[in-house]
Design a protein around this nucleic acid. Structure first.
Lengths: 214, 214, 214, 214
DNA sequence: CATGAATGAGGTTTCATTCAT
DNA sequence: TATGAATGAAACCTCATTCAT
């Protein structure tokens, strides 16, 4: 299966490569993730060809296969990149809220998170729909990245519990629900858009969540 | 556009057929919807071949194409059949709750709906992931079927408003949220299953919703 | 190859049938020839399906196969019917010219023949293009019908030779050339139409032929 | 309409390709035109499969589809190649007759042209019968190539008119008739062969034409 | 005599991946 | 390192013909 000269770079030991320059590998893979996203989101994974993907990446087909083991790997790179960006955004944002009182911090966190989701609507929906197309190994990796967002909200909630502002039986479930509500905005936008704005949706759900835990 | 000698049956004028027996058409299409569901859910739409689908339906390829215009149409039949079943289930169940007081009726309705979703997990998730693969004409048809469920909850909520039990600004949004929460159980089951049971999930969200509207 | 119950009607012993009523057979076959011509000419033989052909004939598929052995046979019926009509037309017309002096008779014959060809343009072109699609047995039958037209002109020319009006080395070649010139009008109409009318074309070639034989 | 990653080479912007090497494209397309001709002529276009065509070209199916967009395009390549060869032959030959007196030049031109047609009988007949199978865009391209031959004869006739050797009302019609007579030899060879040789046919028609214009 | 549902071989076309250059 | 021509398995779909009713 694996041909002569194939490696696995240390940073991402899931994906095959023929290159030995680790920096170059990471650079190229980020290029791939960023440049092919628009195409894949627009045309769908199955309807996009390697030719189109390579072209969208500004590469040749051969070059693509130097840094990636299969078409599936490209899909993974795109989805994981989107997820990572979201996770990093949340981690950075939430860290900046450390000095606000818990209730206010949670409100701002949700607002920021929902706002980010709104901007990435397409990618979020795309990830939901296409995750099934990568092998479970890669699926797990994506889910783990998603859990970093959940963990971020858990932290905020934990602090509120410590201060007595919140009263929560199961931190993880509540944190997950916040995340899920954000995803719902992206998943059902075709419906929600017709009935409310992002701000209304956000306000509504912040209240609902606070009612449940405050 | 329409191939030689093809018809459109009155009951489902979206799908091409070569048969002239309307009863048979409906029978065969239901067979297709029911018998190919398991295969499609398990293997995924793109990875299932027409040959496999036909075989799963107990038909030959030629026969399949007498009652359906394309592989895409099979996908539509499966998704729409699942949706229709769900809608019918809800309509019947909700009708049986007419004599209960609104709050109790809503509680029971949610419980029944979530329970049904739980049994159809795979199909619900499948529909979410594959709807993009049918032409927008068919997508719309599926969404309309889904809206029947939303309409069902709207009815329950409206009755509660009339009796003064509920106080709701926008019926549709609340109804849609109930439906969406049910779908979330199917969509994120891999996560939720690890942290709570269906009963806990149901109870939790019934309370959360009632807090918001009672 | 031939299934139980297959016959060959006496009038056209080339085509298989399941019917025993010879009159009905001939009637149906003429129906087929006449009613499917327009479809075949318009869509082409290969791109027309048996379903369409049957429908154009006002028959069901099964009925069609009662009076014809294959799709190829339908093609034969159409082409042969067209050819026969042309031949009969010529034979009748030429017979009516028996009392005119040879030169005048030939002129009128050519004029009538070219006029008939012009009206049947599509069928003549069609026959040229599709004859190759029937087995040689049927091809021969069609050519023989065509030769009846040639024979008709031969007769006119022979009379002229007998009276001394014409001087011809090889009757058949000249007769065939007249026929061929008529076919050319149908075959190259896309070009000729742009440069001359049927009358001009006819006059021109009548003169040219007379110059050669008078 | 145009598939993923497909190009149109500058030389023949009607046919799709996936290759980027223009020289190679032209080379392969000529290979296709030349090597598949025999097969197509023998078996007919509809009865030849892509597999057979590719094999006759010494290519794999995939390779064929790198240089051609469809089976139809192969047909076009074959017919257009034959036509082009004929046109080039005529142009070259006619240019070599510039110093002969018009009458003699025309005689030699006709003789050469008929001779060439005779050698390409099968391809000429094939082109007549199958042109209908390519889209009108390609049909036009073929007809234009054919008109180059007509133009060649027009030139010869025009020179004769200038010197006073010929007296012609409509150059194009006469030129076209010469061409058509050549094609007739190919189209009706099954009949003509039985009654005269190519030389006889040629002599006969040269006289007939000269009678009309000298 | 008439019907049309059923068959299934075989058609064209696509595209992920390799590897010689 | 980079290229893109070449591969060929496998996909979807059509439709002439049969035969039970």
């Amino acid at each position: 299966m694996v041909r002569a000269g194939a490696h696995f770079s240390p940073k991402n030991p899931i994906l095959r490569t023929y290159s030995k320059d680790h920096q170059l590998i990471d650079l190229r893979r980020e290029q791939i993730a960023m440049r092919s996203a628009r195409l894949l989101v627009k045309k769908g994974y199955d309807r996009s060809t390697i030719r189109e993907i390579a072209s969208a990446c500004g590469m040749t087909m051969g070059m693509l296969y130097h840094y990636v083991g299969s078409k599936e790997d490209v899909l993974y790179l795109v989805m994981n990149h989107a997820m990572s960006q979201l996770a990093e955004f949340c981690e950075k944002t939430f860290a900046g809220l450390a000095n606000h009182p818990p209730i206010q911090a949670l409100q701002m966190a949700i607002k920021e998170y929902f706002g980010k989701i709104d901007k990435q609507q397409d990618l979020v929906l795309f990830t939901y729909q296409e995750t099934k197309n990568v092998r479970s190994e890669l699926q797990r990796s994506i889910l783990e990245t998603n859990m970093r967002v959940v963990a971020g909200f858990e932290g905020l909630l934990a602090r509120g519990c410590a201060t007595g502002d919140f009263k929560i039986r199961n931190l993880t479930i509540v944190a997950h629900e916040v995340v899920a509500l954000g995803q719902l905005w992206a998943l059902n936008r075709w419906f929600l858009r017709k009935h409310c704005t992002l701000d209304e949706y956000t306000t509504e759900h912040i209240q609902s969540i606070l009612r449940g835990i405050a």
